[in-house]
Design a protein around this nucleic acid. Structure first.
Lengths: 190, 190
DNA sequence: CGGTCTCTTGACGGAGTTCAAAGCTAGTGG
DNA sequence: CCACTAGCTTTGAACTCCGTCAAGAGACCG
């Protein structure tokens, strides 16, 4: 039913067919069109979202009333506002589809029950959190050691297909530079 | 023996006295002076470090041969190079004491055994990884919505005691600005 | 006290932003 | 299937935040 979810979990822990059925009891599918929201500012984030297929962005509105993207999520990735979820506080973020997407959500309140039924899910989440933290450490390192020009070139050569897939201004926002400057850089090195 | 470690774990999971003794079998204490290293560039990070008392910094050497701090760790915090640990690759970071410190380390190879003996430790690590990720998301948000001036003022008013505790140039490095600019900001708003 | 870190000052420069306007492109409805 | 429009990208000029450099003043430690 949700092959990408199962494939992704099996990269870290064992999960037999029967257990997959148990897992499915806790998972809800949303089929969304472009620009639909999973989370809006002011709501409390009560679910982890998994991209079975498609693409999401997470952003907030900064003091200049502009959308500032902090994260993308592609096929096989999880996304959530962990701060809102842990402290049960209204989120300052939006999570929105960039294209037509199949999104799975696990309600965080039922996560404990799921873990009781399938203890290996606890391990799975520990491991992917660790991985997300590693990715976050790496991004911090890149941001601090590169100029904005280098950061852009590094990003677009690391993910050439992704750069084609989403609008330039979103890439710019995510990397912390202006669309105008990205445009200048593309002219320089096509 | 290690009251801060136990106190910190008990904020998330149950741990009776007998279990504390089991935990201690897996934990090694290092009493370090100022400027001693737990990890150096080129080594593989094979442990999670817990600050029982004292203060650590994690940094790398950037292209200008300057130390770039990416993280601090105070009493009750964990630190590690997750990237090096997960992929078993040589680290690009140094982890060093800023002051005389009591550091506990858990070898990552024995972590699985520890979890077999005390399954709640798996949950504990899942929860603190989640928390670290939330903190990381928040830092990213602050960095992208504030100017460097605002970022510095926000940081130093959020952690006034910490700013006193470590040298100015380390704060500057962590926040991604030059010591000269920090000096200018302090003159403006003392 | 001497020497080595650490912090401050000020002049200068440049990477990257801002603003305004024009040129494209793609989605939508007629 | 074409035309229209809203949204996206490009251009160029002016500007500014903050880094760089160099030199001096403190501060801390053996």
């Amino acid at each position: 039913m949700y092959p990408n979810l199962v494939k992704q979990i099996r990269r870290y822990v064992k999960l037999d067919e029967h257990e997959v059925q148990i897992l499915y009891k806790y998972v809800k599918l949303s089929s969304l069109n472009k620009k639909e929201y999973l989370l809006k500012e002011g709501q409390i984030c009560r679910a982890f979202y998994f991209v079975e297929k498609g693409c999401l962005r997470m952003f907030f509105i900064n003091s200049k009333m502009a959308e500032q993207i902090t994260q993308f999520a592609l096929d096989g990735w999880w996304i959530a506002d962990y701060f809102s979820y842990i402290d049960n506080k209204p989120s300052e973020y939006y999570i929105q589809t960039i294209e037509k997407s199949e999104i799975l959500s696990i309600d965080v309140l039922s996560l404990d029950d799921l873990i009781k039924e399938l203890p290996q899910i606890e391990r799975y989440f520990r491991l992917i959190m660790q991985k997300a933290l590693a990715a976050s450490q790496l991004r911090t390192k890149y941001m601090s050691e590169m100029t904005k020009e280098e950061f852009y070139l590094h990003f677009s050569s690391s993910f050439p297909d992704f750069v084609q897939r989403v609008p330039q201004y979103m890439i710019a926002s995510y990397l912390g530079l202006t669309p105008e400057y990205v445009s200048e850089l593309r002219k320089k090195k096509p």
